[in-house]
C-alpha cells in the first residue's frame, strides 16, 4: 500500500499545488501555518473535495482522483481522524466505532465484536455503551482513532488530531497515537501546525506554505536545517540567508557572519537563540561574531527570556531570567550580541 498524489486546487485566494508520496507503513507529516492549504490537501486525499487538477494514486495503479475520475470518499478505503473527534452524538461509542464496518456490509454482531476489540486496543474497554458526550477529550479522540482504524484502511488521514486536547492529555494521546501509527501497515498523512506533533509522529515532514511545498525531509533534518523563516521559527531557530565566502558568510541583508567551515555559494545560517550571549560592554577576547544591536522586545519563555534584537544582523537570544535581570535591559537598550562560529549550522540554500 502506498500513496502518490499531485493535488492542484483553488480555494478562494489560495492556489494549492502539492506533490507527495507516502510509502507503506510510512507517516507523512504535513506541517504549515493556518490557511496554507493543509486541510484542503487532506480533503482532496479523502475524496471530500474534487480537485481542479492532478491525480491521487493508491497502490501504484488504483486511481482515486483524476481529471476524468473522481472516486467519492465513501468508496475509498480510508480512515480519517478529525480535530474535534466528530463522534456521532446520537450513537454509542461502540456504534461509532462499528459504523464504518456496518456501512460496508459487515454483520452487526461481527462489527460489534471488532469495535469492542479496537476499543480495547485504544484503552477504552468497557466504555462501548457510553455516549460520546460522556467521554473526556482524550477518550473521545482515542475512540475516533479506533473508528478510523477499525476497517484496516489503505490510507489513514489525521487532521490536527491532538490540537483540541489540553497539554497533559496531548502528551499521553500523542504517545499512544505514535504506537498505533507504528503498528499501522498502510500509508498515513498527518496534518498539523504543531512541530512537536510532526517531529514525534512523522517519519517524514512536508512543510507547506501558501499552497506550495517549501521543504521536505526527515523531521530531524527539517528541525536542524529549516529553509524558511516559518519553519525556523517553529523549530526555534533564527535563519540568516547569505553567500558563502571561505569561512565567512556575507548576509543578504548586510553584515558578515564567521563560520567554522569553508563554504561557497548561497547558504543558510541557522542560529540557536540559546547560543547567543548578550553583554553591556563589548566582550573581551574578541570572539569573531560580535555585533552592537538594539533590544526590540523581551518576552518570558519558560525559564528564559526571549530577546528579539534589531540591527545589522537581526537575531534572537535566549538568556536566563537571572542574567536578564543582572543586565537590567529594557526595550530600546543597546547591547552587544556574540555567538561562537562553532555554534552555527551552515547549509546550502
Amino acid at each position: 500500500m502506498s500513496l502518490a498524489a499531485h493535488v492542484v486546487a483553488r480555494r478562494g485566494a489560495l492556489g494549492l499545488d502539492v506533490e507527495l508520496a507516502v510509502a507503506d507503513g510510512e507517516v507523512l507529516g504535513v506541517l504549515g501555518p493556518n490557511g496554507a492549504g493543509k486541510s484542503t490537501l487532506l480533503r482532496v486525499l479523502a475524496g471530500l473535495l474534487v480537485p481542479d487538477g492532478g491525480r491521487v494514486v493508491v497502490d501504484g495503479d488504483r486511481v482515486w482522483d483524476d481529471v476524468d475520475l473522481h472516486v467519492p470518499a465513501h468508496q475509498r478505503s480510508l480512515g480519517m481522524v478529525f480535530q474535534d473527534h466528530l463522534l456521532f452524538p446520537h450513537l454509542s461509542v461502540a456504534e461509532n466505532v462499528a459504523f464504518g464496518l456496518r456501512t460496508r456490509g459487515v454483520r452487526r454482531a461481527e462489527a460489534r465484536a471488532a469495535a469492542e476489540s479496537w476499543l480495547d486496543r485504544v484503552g477504552l474497554a468497557g466504555l462501548g455503551d457510553s455516549r460520546p458526550g460522556q467521554l473526556s477529550g482524550g477518550q473521545a479522540q482515542r475512540a475516533a482513532l479506533a473508528r478510523a482504524l477499525v476497517g484496516d484502511p489503505r490510507l489513514l488521514l489525521l487532521d490536527e488530531p491532538l490540537s483540541a486536547l489540553d497539554a497533559r492529555t496531548r502528551l499521553t494521546v500523542r504517545a499512544e497515537l505514535h504506537r498505533h501509527l507504528a503498528e499501522y501497515a498502510g500509508s498515513a498523512v498527518l496534518v498539523t501546525h504543531d512541530p512537536v506533533d510532526a517531529m514525534a509522529l512523522a517519519d517524514r515532514v512536508l512543510v507547506v506554505e501558501d499552497g506550495a511545498v517549501v521543504q521536505a525531509g526527515p523531521p530531524a533534518e527539517v528541525a536542524r536545517r529549516p529553509r524558511t523563516d516559518y519553519v525556523a521559527r517553529l523549530v526555534g531557530l533564527v535563519l540568516l540567508a547569505g553567500m558563502g565566502d571561505g569561512q565567512q558568510v556575507r548576509l543578504d541583508g548586510g553584515g558578515v557572519v564567521a563560520v567554522a567551515e569553508d563554504v561557497a555559494g548561497p547558504v543558510f545560517v541557522a542560529v540557536r537563540p540559546e547560543s547567543v550571549a548578550l553583554y553591556l560592554q563589548r566582550p573581551v577576547g574578541s570572539p569573531r561574531n560580535v555585533w552592537p544591536l538594539r533590544l526590540a522586545t523581551a518576552t518570558p519563555h519558560g525559564s528564559v527570556v526571549r530577546c528579539d534584537l534589531t540591527g545589522e544582523v537581526p537575531l534572537t537570544a535566549d538568556v536566563t531570567a537571572t542574567s536578564f535581570a543582572e543586565l537590567g535591559l529594557a526595550p530600546g537598550a543597546e547591547v552587544w550580541a556574540a555567538v561562537k562560529a562553532s555554534e552555527l549550522t551552515v547549509y546550502p540554500r
Binding site: R43, A46, G47, L48, P72, A73, H74, Q75, R76, L78, G79, M80, F82, L86, F88, P89, H90, L91, F99, G100, T103, R104, R147, A148, G151, L157
Partner: peptide
C-alpha cells in the same frame, strides 16, 4: 447542524443516502 459529521460518515464508507438516514436525520431529529 455541523455538516462535518456528514464528511466523517463519508470517510466511513457511508453514501449520501446512508449518511442522511444514519447521521443527518438523527442529528436534526
Amino acid at each position: 447542524a455541523d455538516a462535518r459529521f456528514e464528511d466523517a460518515a463519508a470517510t466511513l464508507g457511508a453514501d449520501r443516502w446512508t449518511t442522511f438516514r444514519r447521521v443527518t436525520l438523527p442529528l436534526v431529529a
